[in-house]
Simulated assay, not measured.
Amino acid sequence: MSETRKENRQIKFRVSEQEFQQLETSAASVGMTVPAFAKSKVQGKRIKSPRVEREGALEIARQLRYYNSNLNQLVKWININKDLRPESDLKGMEQQLDGIRKGIEELWEQLSR
């Protein structure tokens, strides 16, 4: 069975342990694998450090999943209870939406720094 790949040529080369460590350190600093880093360098691409380190990005993704879950639960409740919207429910939904909006704005500020 043949593989279908965008790039069909493969290059293999050897480096010393020290050279590999340097490549690994450089790649990790920009959040890339060694092969992806080496390919980008050969292609002359400008490699920038990410604005958010990996752990920070994972935390932001976790928080976004939390807000997404809350929003989905709210929309599901609204769809199930289409005819039941007492004033107290509307105020509660507005508070939930406001909390979600504020949380997402805080995450956006973290990414914009």
Rank of each mutant, 00 (worst) to 15 (best):
R14C: 05
S16P: 08
E17I: 09
W77M: 09
T25K: 03
K12C: 09
A36D: 15
S2G: 04
P86W: 01
R46K: 10
S26W: 01
T25R: 03
K39N: 09
L90T: 14
R101P: 02
S29A: 13
E87S: 15
R62A: 06
P35K: 04
V30G: 13
E7A: 12
I104E: 10
D83R: 14
G31W: 02
A61Q: 11
S112R: 13
E59I: 11
V34M: 08
N68W: 04
R46W: 03
S29G: 01
G92F: 09
G44M: 07
T4K: 03
D83G: 07
Q96N: 04
L74G: 04
S16Q: 07
G56F: 07
L23K: 08
S26Q: 05
S2M: 01
E87P: 07
Q63P: 03
M93G: 11
V30L: 02
I104M: 15
I80T: 12
F20E: 02
I80Q: 05
N81R: 00
A36H: 03
A57C: 07
T4P: 07
K12M: 10
N68F: 08
Y66M: 10
E3A: 14
V42H: 05
Q73G: 14
L84D: 11
E105P: 00
I80F: 05
Y67V: 06
I104K: 09
N79S: 00
E24R: 11
L84R: 06
K102V: 07
V52I: 14
E105H: 11
I11H: 09
Q73D: 07
P50T: 02
S88H: 11
Q18W: 06
I78S: 08
E59D: 14
R65A: 15
Q110W: 04
D83Y: 05
A61G: 08
Q95N: 14
L23A: 09
Q22W: 06
L64M: 14
V42A: 15
E87L: 11
K82R: 15
Q18Y: 10
V15A: 11
S40Y: 06
K76Q: 08
R51C: 00
R14L: 01
R85N: 15
R113T: 12
Q96D: 05
L107F: 00
M1A: 08
S69L: 13
G44N: 06
E109H: 05
G31C: 07
A27H: 04
K82C: 01
E94Q: 11
K12F: 10
S16Y: 10
K82S: 09
V52R: 10
R85E: 15
S112T: 06
E94C: 11
R51A: 01
E106K: 14
S40I: 00
N72P: 00
S88A: 15
W77D: 13
L107S: 03
R62K: 13
F20G: 05
S112A: 15
L97D: 05
L107G: 05
K102Q: 05
R54L: 11
K91C: 02
A36V: 12
Q96I: 13
F20R: 00
V15G: 08
L23E: 06
R54E: 12
R5A: 11
I78N: 05
A36T: 13
S16M: 09
V52T: 08
S2A: 12
V34K: 00
R51Y: 03
Q95D: 14
N72T: 05
E55Y: 10
R9N: 10
E53L: 04
P35G: 12
R46H: 07
E109K: 15
R46G: 01
D89Y: 12
